[in-house]
Design a protein around this nucleic acid. Structure first.
Lengths: 329, 329
DNA sequence: TTGTACGCGTTATCAT
DNA sequence: ATGATAACGCGTACAA
């Protein structure tokens, strides 16, 4: 059996109450502090977190619920969040629901059952009621559910601004490949596209708006569709890392030169676009700030501070201008 | 306060022992089973895992210790392992030590302190003694430490076989970019390179063996070095995802055509190489099988089955032949 | 098959 | 400042 607080008490001749106080930073005589410290060292005492949790109802563990771990956007977010949570003393349990609404809710219940202290969730179909019913602080990430704390990016303006720039440079036939409209990010990105055209009183060719999943297959398939159109779109904007990958695959397969044959705007993809000799202009979401904001907000909530609830934190994207936007006469 | 086993006992008029038995699959009268099931439903009873852990000394949680979460090889491994562990009832706590030996050991202690049931670790500098001192089942992944269970890939033959093929096709000046030789994978891959040359009684130009970290910067820097050589290497083999990315960046920056100007063999990189119109030949590690093997072995150990300890499971890589190996006369 | 009672290791209350 | 002790919720002898 591992050594317990009791052993330390016995070893030092003090009571377990004093040891507990020492551990939790209470007032203990300097002399005793030293003895306890030594005893802990000698006996190699470690706090039993299960026992502590039983008393405190805290597990110092946070659950991260993601649609997928296979796409860099989510795994990178994890990479950024992990040390931040750790700096507040929290461990991170990672759960993916594999883009499955049923697994989404079941994993949520699973996390609840673990009695973790908080949840960071990227929701797809789960509702505000289901989320609040958990009775655990939840901060949503990337996707918004009204009435709950969330940290998202300014999807509307992200797409609006780049499409507007394309319009200003004379582009009219601008293809866009979007995720499912049930996901808030896809809905908002579509809105950004539409608003840019509305701002300039331009008609929208609905066939240029391609909708699918946030995956490589969609990027490839819809890019092919766009490239089959006559006349060809002069520019294509995509809306996720995986869609970017698929779309570039399609463009290369068709021997299209970017940006000479078609102007292309990627999304959340740095690596591939860096590797090309003609790097691609790309919308980048602020991963670091998202991670910081989510962590900060969740920790605040877990500390019982519900000021400003529900809080919606919308962060700006940046545009990596690797290629001057081509002019259309 | 949440409802406890006690509440269920009271509600049903049975004792807590019976409820406990019901929960843990013991013998309970069919009639009582039904009543208990209903009571649990009505009262919305949930097991308190902290209390259970306190009794059983099991947390049903596994720690994953990685050098980094920023590189796809590790984050994908996580993606594959998570559902497998889940199917055995385990949650997964993810920890990265950011390629820092000090953090490596401290995170290991941290995981130990959490009293998780098992650890999957990708070690860099940690020793067998430090690992066994944890008194927790540990299965190493990707990198081997003698005397411990581990699941690795056959690094020697992975590199040997592709280099041999290059030699057979007439290549003599074959560059290779490796990770730090203190990491077993890099050491083994170097060995594979050397053995291939030894097999054919060919001398090795040591300046073609480039060593650095498993990161993009190394790939870029060392590829530039190789491309500055006269005469140019006729082929370059790299040894990690990130090195692949960096090396391709360098090649494209230098306007080199792959495989016309130089034959290139990537490692663990599917996406970028797929995106090219001339996809790159690539060594692929079997992520799925690694995940399966690691999970299986760790679960076995956590169940107390130490047969065959220490077990070294070496898995074969595959070679994605996207480009016929160029012939050198 | 079911019930009683104890202990797991900790925190927290209340005396001292 | 320190100590005795009662919970926290569960599993499990042991008894019935």
């Amino acid at each position: 059996m591992a050594t317990t607080i009791k052993d330390v008490a016995q070893y030092t001749g003090l009571s377990i109450a004093t040891i507990s106080k020492y551990i939790n930073g209470g007032n203990v005589l300097e002399d005793n502090r030293k003895r306890i410290g030594e005893a802990i060292e000698v006996l190699d005492y470690k706090v039993n977190y299960a026992a502590r949790s039983l008393k405190t109802n805290k597990t110092m563990t946070v659950g991260i619920l993601l649609p997928s771990l296979f796409t860099p956007f989510f795994s990178l977010i994890c990479a950024y969040i992990e040390p931040l949570l750790k700096s507040h003393g929290y461990s991170m349990i990672v759960c993916s629901y594999h883009d499955d609404p049923i697994e989404e809710i079941s994993k949520l219940k699973f996390l609840q059952a673990l009695s973790i202290d908080g949840i960071v969730a990227v929701p797809t179909t789960v509702t505000a009621d289901e989320l609040t019913a958990l009775k655990i602080p939840v901060v949503l990430m990337d996707r918004n559910v009204p009435g709950l704390d969330s940290v998202v990016t300014d999807n509307i303006n992200a797409v609006h601004d780049v499409v507007e720039e394309l319009i200003i440079h004379g582009h009219r036939r601008i293809g866009i490949i979007l995720g499912p409209p049930t996901v808030t990010t896809a809905y908002e990105r579509k809105l950004g596209y539409e608003r840019a055209f509305a701002d300039y009183n331009l008609p929208i060719d609905e066939s240029l708006i391609r909708i699918g999943e946030y995956d490589i297959a969609t990027g490839y398939r819809e890019m092919i569709e766009l490239l089959n159109m006559k006349p060809l779109p002069t520019a294509v904007v995509v809306s996720s890392h995986d869609i970017t990958v698929g779309a570039i695959m399609a463009a290369y397969e068709r021997k299209l030169k970017i940006p000479d044959d078609i102007y292309f705007v990627g999304y959340d993809e740095e690596q591939i676009t860096k590797v090309f000799n003609a790097p691609v202009t790309t919308v980048l979401q602020p991963l670091v700030e998202i991670a910081q904001s989510v962590t900060e907000l969740l920790v605040k909530r877990m500390n019982g501070d519900y000021s400003g609830y529900p809080q919606l934190n919308r962060l700006k994207t940046t545009l990596l201008r690797h290629q001057p936007i081509s002019k259309i006469e």
